[in-house]
Simulated assay, not measured.
Amino acid sequence: MARDGDPELELEPPRASSTGRVRSRPDPFLVVCRCFSLITALTAILCIAVNVLSAVRSFKNGSDVFDGIFRCYAVVIAFFVVLAETEWSFIIKFWKVLEYWAGRGMLQIFVAVMTRAFPDYSESQKDLVLLQNIASYTLLSCGLVYVISGLLCIGYLKRSRHQKEITREQAVQDLEELERRREELEQLLLDERRV
């Protein structure tokens, strides 16, 4: 027990713990980049769906097997576009060109062109042609934005800010761990002095 007047034994009351996580505001630039990446990934998924439908119809007819094979390649490459937008380190490690926005944009433009190629203008497939046009022109727009942004070094700026955000989050976690450890030690010290 602490005695009155003995400064050595009087303990200051424990400081209010930071039970709430120290929050820093998200970087608006990174939020915009993530939203654009999400839009691009969803557009690439639409291209995958359109190309799968086109491949199935081509193989069903039997007359246009080459178009079906072409569509299968488009599906595989569009899948890589989706993976590139997740920025999964495994993919980036093996395909370094996808780390750079200009390279990523050129891949998206290629998929858009593949999706738009060989349109079937028969009356019965107007819905598929409309989906092809929407998917291809949207992905083409995303690809052009990526290429232009890559040439303007916006991708480098995004990677730099993302690295700073990771460093900041790690510092906050370390600070919270130190605060938790300090509170544990203060509690041990209080318990020790009470004995």
Results as ranks from 00 to 15, higher is better:
residue 1 M to T: 13
residue 1 M to C: 05
residue 5 G to W: 12
residue 6 D to S: 07
residue 8 E to P: 00
residue 8 E to D: 13
residue 10 E to T: 13
residue 13 P to R: 13
residue 19 T to A: 14
residue 20 G to D: 05
residue 21 R to N: 07
residue 28 P to R: 03
residue 29 F to V: 14
residue 32 V to T: 04
residue 40 T to G: 09
residue 41 A to D: 00
residue 44 A to G: 06
residue 47 C to F: 05
residue 49 A to P: 08
residue 52 V to G: 01
residue 57 R to S: 06
residue 57 R to C: 13
residue 59 F to S: 02
residue 66 F to P: 00
residue 68 G to F: 09
residue 71 R to A: 04
residue 80 F to E: 05
residue 82 V to R: 01
residue 84 A to K: 05
residue 87 E to C: 01
residue 90 F to Q: 02
residue 90 F to N: 02
residue 91 I to E: 10
residue 93 K to P: 01
residue 94 F to P: 00
residue 97 V to F: 15
residue 101 W to R: 02
residue 102 A to G: 03
residue 105 G to E: 02
residue 105 G to C: 03
residue 110 F to P: 00
residue 117 A to D: 13
residue 119 P to S: 10
residue 119 P to I: 09
residue 119 P to G: 13
residue 122 S to F: 06
residue 126 K to C: 02
residue 127 D to K: 05
residue 128 L to C: 09
residue 128 L to M: 12
residue 130 L to R: 11
residue 134 I to G: 02
residue 139 L to R: 00
residue 140 L to G: 03
residue 148 I to T: 12
residue 148 I to F: 12
residue 148 I to Y: 12
residue 151 L to D: 03
residue 153 C to S: 14
residue 155 G to C: 07
residue 158 K to F: 09
residue 159 R to V: 02
residue 169 E to Q: 11
residue 171 A to E: 14
residue 181 R to L: 07
residue 188 L to W: 09
residue 190 L to E: 14
residue 194 R to G: 03
